[in-house]
Simulated scan of single mutants.
Amino acid sequence: MTPAELSWTVLSTVRRAVAADELRVAVPEKVVVQRPPRPGCGDYATNVAMQLAGQAGRTAREVAEILAVRLAKEPGIAQVEIAGTGFLNITLSARAYADVVRQVREQGADYGRGDGLAGETVTVVPEPPHAPRAALVAEVVNGLLRAAGAETAAGGRLEGLSAAEPAQDPGARGLGPDATRWSLLRPPAEDTPRPGPALLDQREANPLFRVRYANARTRALLRNAHDLGVRVEAAARDPYRHPAETELLGLIADFPRVVETAARRRAPDRLARHLERLGDAFLRFQDECPALPKGDEKPSAVHAARVRLADATGIVLADGLHLLGISAPDHL
């Protein structure tokens, strides 16, 4: 279940509560669900009860209690808890997580593309040649807009697009196209990029290296799984329960929303930061959840499920890098 699907589920729950006269409110056009700010608060959270409380003439917690009972019965939802004055914290079921992996592997590079901006037409032209960062941001935003379903056309200036140009650094010469792109796209638009040779370092302190290394590790896991006889394509109900697995799955499921938000906000840095979080989560998963049998251990359904999760992670990492115009090699 992706955040978009969960948002639709919450919205449908509100609609049914209104139809049953449990709530007397105007059904909103959309409901926002987000990853919670800290662990232990479910997989997603929504403040829909707070949005509706005033109209309903009830407290936000009373509205949340009505919605929680209905939401907990929805397929793909394992648990709903009420936090604070009325936040709904939603935990997805193992089956919902398995569906995310299946969707990513079936859709491949199309995963993350959507129609959230369908019907919108925007015009984009690069800034003058003396503004290299603005030109690059315009190019990448163009691609993000198309990925989110918008129609793009040449001949105008994209509203809201501006970017501080990079500080001159003699050490930045020779970075190459991938590191140069990352150095210009990763900082928020208002921040001045400071490209330097550290972006070429093959070590943990370099975020671009971590993202590309994580992608390469997913491909290596697939190759090794094949050599060890792990039946990756065997049908099974994937038992994703470990916190490192669910954290990784949440970030994968959130990828389509991140692409759309980056397009709406004209902010490629949002996508770059998400890839960092995804890459770091995969490296934690790799350490905490062995995906390959060791020694005389026989390949199991758990190994196969984890290799499928690694494959889905690699698909999303590569797709995100390609949206930024950065290569995603299988070997580093």
Rank of each mutant, 00 (worst) to 15 (best):
E245F: 15
P128W: 01
R257D: 10
P75G: 05
Q34M: 05
N206W: 10
S327I: 06
D269P: 02
L67T: 00
Y213G: 02
L199Y: 04
L248W: 11
G174M: 10
S12Y: 00
L324F: 08
P36L: 01
A216P: 09
L136T: 01
P75Q: 04
H322S: 15
I77C: 11
I90P: 03
R217N: 11
R70F: 01
A301I: 05
H274V: 05
L278N: 04
G325C: 14
E81V: 12
E62A: 15
A49L: 08
L208A: 04
T91P: 00
R15D: 09
T46A: 09
R264L: 11
L88T: 02
A198L: 14
R70W: 04
H322V: 09
R102K: 12
P188Y: 12
L92W: 01
P299Y: 13
L275P: 09
A96Y: 00
D21N: 04
A272L: 10
A4S: 11
A154Y: 13
V258Y: 04
G76K: 14
R38M: 12
P268T: 08
A20Q: 07
G119F: 10
D330N: 05
R217P: 02
F255H: 09
A267L: 09
R219S: 09
A216L: 06
R35E: 09
F209T: 01
G160F: 08
H226N: 08
A205M: 08
V125E: 12
L271V: 05
A225P: 11
V125N: 11
D330Y: 02
R270V: 08
A234R: 12
G42T: 06
W182N: 08
Q103G: 03
L228Q: 15
L161S: 02
A49W: 12
P170S: 13
L221V: 15
P290V: 07
P177D: 14
E139Y: 12
A131G: 03
R265C: 06
A53S: 10
R173Q: 14
A318I: 01
I315G: 00
L228M: 11
N47D: 09
E65A: 13
